[in-house]
């Protein structure tokens, strides 16, 4: 399994699309590692500094419909090569969500009020999130606070996370 623990990057906007996550001009790369410098390059968001804010982050917390637009798996790959294997949002675009699990990464959906709660209580502070894969819990920690939040994930998705992705599973079973 991949690493599902570390510092959190809060992105306070809905509908962040795949072109913002990784612009099409970089889709000519044929290795995942080559995408590393370009993650979120076209995202303009008040308070977000692409050069400084991605460093050492492992988890993204954002709003609704993250990853909408293109089918490019370069979006999860660009996250992965930057050490980000978990995105937590109200919901995801279908293809992006499936791509995350197909790569053995987490795209966790939480109700709107839980997402709002995370933004109100943790955004702007140094926050760490750890995913407890067996107990289906998100452990959130900041300097003054630590708590656990339950999440639900389908059996298929969890199997992909544990098996490290869809290719290995499909090869064994189909």
């Amino acid at each position: 399994m991949k690493n599902f623990s570390g510092k959190v990057l809060f992105l306070d906007r809905s509908d962040i699309n795949t072109d913002e996550i990784i612009p099409a001009r970089y889709l000519t790369e044929i290795t995942k590692e080559a995408l590393k410098p370009y993650l979120l390059e076209d995202l303009t968001l008040p308070g977000f500094n692409v050069k400084e804010d991605i460093n050492d982050k492992a988890v993204i917390v954002t709003k609704a419909n993250f990853g909408c637009g293109s089918s490019r798996e370069h979006a999860p790959w660009a996250l992965e090569v930057n050490g980000i294997n978990v995105v937590i949002a109200e919901n995801f675009a279908r293809i992006f969500r499936q791509n995350m699990y197909n790569c053995g990464m987490f795209a966790i959906e939480l109700p709107k009020e839980k997402i709002e709660y995370l933004f109100e209580n943790y955004a702007g502070k140094e926050t760490t999130i750890t995913i407890d894969v067996d107990k289906d819990k998100i452990i959130v920690t900041s300097a003054d606070k630590s708590e656990e939040i339950d999440f639900k994930v389908g059996e298929f998705d969890k199997t992909l996370v544990k098996e490290g992705g869809w290719v290995g599973y499909a090869d064994k079973n189909y």
């Binding site: 490019r72 293809i95 869809w166 290719v167 499909a170």
Partner: peptide
Amino acid sequence: AAGVGTTDLEVGILKGVCA
């Protein structure tokens, strides 16, 4: 007809299935 990522495509090419 559905758009998919590279991993789903890869399994489609190899096995002719998609979930």
